[in-house]
């Protein structure tokens, strides 16, 4: 059954995918830099009235916590990556590499760039996990 992106059900599936990924377990094994929040900016035309963050409590190769949060809370994460719905859709579909997306300004990053660069493989693996979730996009 496909899960609407983003939704409580979708993020639960996403957490499962992360925590069963052997690749992420390895590439994120030394990650102690804190949570990452992926913010989907408001887009009423697809039913997203306000900016919404997907908070990933990542620690040493495990996603310990996942939740949907409003923007104010999202911005408290040490790493915040923001983009509009179409960009995140491309990322989830594996059509846009998130690091390339950040380089091109299609996704905006707040946080320590050297850390992101050092964990570029882990970020790739997190995207792989997202693409494994059976996803229903809100504009389809």
């Amino acid at each position: 059954m496909p899960y609407k992106f983003p939704s409580e059900d979708w993020i639960k599936e996403y957490q499962k995918a992360i925590n069963t990924s052997e690749d992420y377990k390895q590439s994120g094994a030394t990650w102690t830099a804190g949570s990452v929040c992926l913010v989907v900016t408001a887009n009423p035309s697809v039913g997203i009235e306000k900016d919404v963050g997907i908070w990933l409590g990542l620690h040493k190769g495990v996603c310990e916590e996942i939740k949907l949060v409003p923007l104010e809370e999202a911005q408290k994460a040490p790493f915040v990556i923001m983009g509009d719905y179409s960009r995140w859709k491309q990322v989830v579909l594996g059509e846009l590499d998130p690091v390339q997306g950040m380089m091109q300004g299609k996704l905006k990053l707040k946080g320590d760039l050297p850390t992101i660069v050092r964990y570029v493989r882990a970020s790739q693996d997190l995207v792989q996990c997202a693409s494994k979730v059976d996803t229903q996009f809100m504009d389809e």
């Binding site: 990053l109 760039l113 050297p114």
Partner: peptide
Amino acid sequence: DSVPAQALRQMGTDSGMDLGMM
């Protein structure tokens, strides 16, 4: 403001090594 410039400023041209390996 651009991310490539920030990467270059913070880590030099060697900022490309980790991504390049992947």
